[in-house]
Structure formats: structure tokens, C-alpha cells
Design a protein around this nucleic acid. Structure first.
Lengths: 197, 197
DNA sequence: TTCGTACTTGACATTATGTAAAGTAACCCG
DNA sequence: CGGGTTACTTTACATAATGTCAAGTACGAA
């Protein structure tokens, strides 16, 4: 029974996570999070300097709990470039729905908070590196379509897999998360993989 | 000299437009707009019910001044489906940079204001109809790649041409607006146009 | 001259974030 | 047992921006 009772910091992060998920990142005030965590609003500031800070910590917390690093790392063990591309898209694409609420909140404060902008940028840079690695793997298999420079291919894959793109296709166009992943895999192969014949 | 002196409403819209463009839609308060227009902050509320209302009116104003309707309509006169696709992408893709500041501000308030969300949605629906028309033109030319259902092709073209996509490629990846348009045209043809041989 | 329209001025309400300070309750250590 | 530290509560206040309200002014038209 080491962890039947979470410490306060974790309770706050759990509360923030839950509310962000329930409300898709909207209408989650500091006071709401405090109430959900069962503490006073002021106590939040004993653990986090400000709202942006708390949001950033929440994404890190989710990353830890969900083990995204391990999931993305797994995609790097694939044998061929094509398998690696598929595995990466699968890993990241199925992770997006799990962070969508917090991601949306973070994207919203990003406009007004430099720290949040930086935190978001770093996360997206990590995704970009995954894209980069997948494209490089294709290239070393001689499977990268010659019509792309590497950088352009990375820009494009990265944009295809952006949270905003996922948002538009699933929220506005009604695709399921699986359809997004399947489509992205197909499209990436069609775009980047050369057909040797 | 019918219009050397603009009426107040137009001066407000011009002021809002200028500031949104200068500051890319960020840090533009009602008081800033009032100051730029040379009137009191309260006078804004004599012309617009609230901030969202003013933003919406500003986009309509820009649309009128820039004549986007005419530009998009022109793409409908193209002879072939492929030319029509190209012309539509050209028209919309070169319009995005002209509205980016206001679009960004509108996207930001969209999260908290139902009217703004509705206004944005309507504009994007109009773009979607353009995508729809271009895909339909391809189809009636027998040039639509059979691997797509029409709806999926529209979803995809619409997402490729979203403001968020434009934003990521130009702001984060450093593409020029022209590169975005050229790439979009190439990519749309590659994706949607069947090769008859 | 008077009336109405458009704008100004100044005061205030609201909402959310964030700061500050004093009080309390539990717990550990000597 | 007693004193101090830690974590949290309570209450009060500062700030920024939007939006409301009401009284005052200036100017043009009938």
C-alpha cells in the first residue's frame, strides 16, 4: 500500500489531467483544479508558479504515466525503414487522443505565455525528431522517393501528424482516431516511399 | 473626394485590421484599437457589441476590400478540373497570408466565444465548398483518382489548405507563402489526379 | 433655437490570475 | 513534553481586460 494516498502535487496533476480531458482543455480554471484536488486555490501556487507551469507539468506527468518515450523508442527498433515509419506513425498517432485536452489548453496559453510556447515547441521538436529519424531510415534503405529533399519530407510528415491536423480531421471531419492513423500511414508511404520496379 | 474621410465604423475596422496585421493577431486590446482609430474605447461599443463581433466584422471587411469572393469565383471558370484545382489552391493559398493576423485572433477567441466559433466555421465551410467544387470538377473530368471516395478527398484537401497547416509550414518550418502554394498544388495533383496511360 | 445623433468622460461590475500575510494542525526531533 | 518546521487554509488585495451605465458635450439639420 505504498501509494493508496497520493501526495498533493500528484493529486493536483491528476485533477488537472482529469478536468482537461473531460472538458477538452476548455473552462478549466485554477479554482476548478483546486476543488477537484480537494485543496484551496492558493495551495496550487505552493506547487506551481502559475497556470502555464501547471499545464506544462501536467503534460510531463501524462507522458510519464503513459510512457510515450518508451512507445516512440520502440518504433526505432523496427527492421526496415518502412516498418519504422509505420511504427512511428502508429505510436504518435494513437498518443494524440490521449493528450488532446491538455494539448489544446497548452496551445491556447502558448499565445500569451512564453514558457508555455517554449514547452510546446520542445515537445513538438521531439516529434519532429521522430519524423526525421523515420525519414532517415527510409533514406538509408534507399526507399526515400527522390523527389523530396530530406528536410522537405520531414516538414511535411511533421505537419501531417500535427495535433491541429488531427484535430481538424477528427473533430471537424468526423474521422475516428484509427482512421487518422491508417490514413496517415497510407499517405506517408504514398508520398515518401519510392516504388522500385 | 467622396471618401477622403472615412466614417467611424470604417476607421475602427481599418484600425483593427492594421493592428492585427502588425501584431499577428496578438496583444490587440479594445483600447489599442480605439486609440488607433482616434476615438474613445467606449465608442467601440456603439458600433460593435463586443470584441468577437468586431473581429468578425473585420474579417468581412477584409474580404470585401480584397475581393476574395471574386477571386475564388474566378477559379470556377477554369476549363479543366485540373486547372480548376490549381486556380482554387492559388486563390485561397495566396489569400491566407493576407488574413493571417485576424484569422489568428479569431481562432483564439473561438475557444471562448460561440459567435466567433460560428463565424469561423462559416468561413471555413466556404473554403470547404471550394474544395468540394474542385474535387467534383476533377471527378466529372474522370480525373479523380479512384482510390478516394469524394468525401475523403475533400476532407483531405481542406485540411491540407487549412490556416493551421499554412501556419506550421510558414511560421515553424520557414516556408515562403509561394512555396506553400506550389507545394499544395503539386501535392494535390499527386494525390487526387489519376494518371491515365 | 431646439432636437437628435454621435461621441466623450468617468465610474463601476465582473472574471480570472497572481501576491501577500497571518493563522492552524500535524509531525518530527531533542 | 515542548518547540520548531512544513504544508496547507483563510482572507484580503492587486491587476488586467472586457463590458455596462449614465451624464455630459458638440455639432448639424429642421
Amino acid at each position: 500500500m505504498s501509494s493508496t494516498k497520493l501526495d498533493t502535487r500528484s493529486r493536483i496533476l491528476e485533477a488537472a489531467w482529469k478536468l482537461m480531458e473531460d472538458r477538452l482543455g476548455q473552462n478549466v480554471r485554477m479554482s476548478d483544479i483546486a476543488a477537484e484536488a480537494g485543496i484551496s486555490r492558493q495551495a496550487l501556487y505552493l506547487h506551481f508558479a502559475n497556470r502555464a507551469d501547471l499545464l506544462i507539468a501536467t503534460t510531463r506527468y501524462i507522458d510519464d504515466v503513459k510512457g510515450i518515450d518508451a512507445r516512440l523508442a520502440a518504433s526505432r527498433t523496427s527492421a526496415s525503414g518502412i516498418e519504422r515509419l509505420d511504427a512511428f506513425i502508429e505510436a504518435w498517432g494513437s498518443y494524440i487522443p490521449e493528450i488532446y485536452g491538455v494539448a489544446r489548453a497548452l496551445l491556447a496559453v502558448k499565445d500569451t505565455d512564453a514558457d508555455a510556447a517554449e514547452a510546446w515547441s520542445q515537445r513538438m521538436q521531439a516529434v519532429r525528431e521522430g519524423c526525421q529519424a523515420a525519414i532517415a531510415a527510409l533514406d538509408s534503405d534507399n526507399a526515400l522517393s527522390p523527389e523530396w529533399t530530406g528536410d522537405r519530407a520531414v516538414d511535411l510528415l511533421w505537419t501531417m501528424l500535427s495535433v491541429r491536423n488531427w484535430e481538424q480531421l477528427t473533430q471537424d471531419c468526423g474521422w475516428t482516431a484509427e482512421e487518422f492513423v491508417d490514413y496517415s500511414k497510407r499517405q506517408a508511404k504514398r508520398n515518401f516511399v519510392v516504388v522500385h520496379n
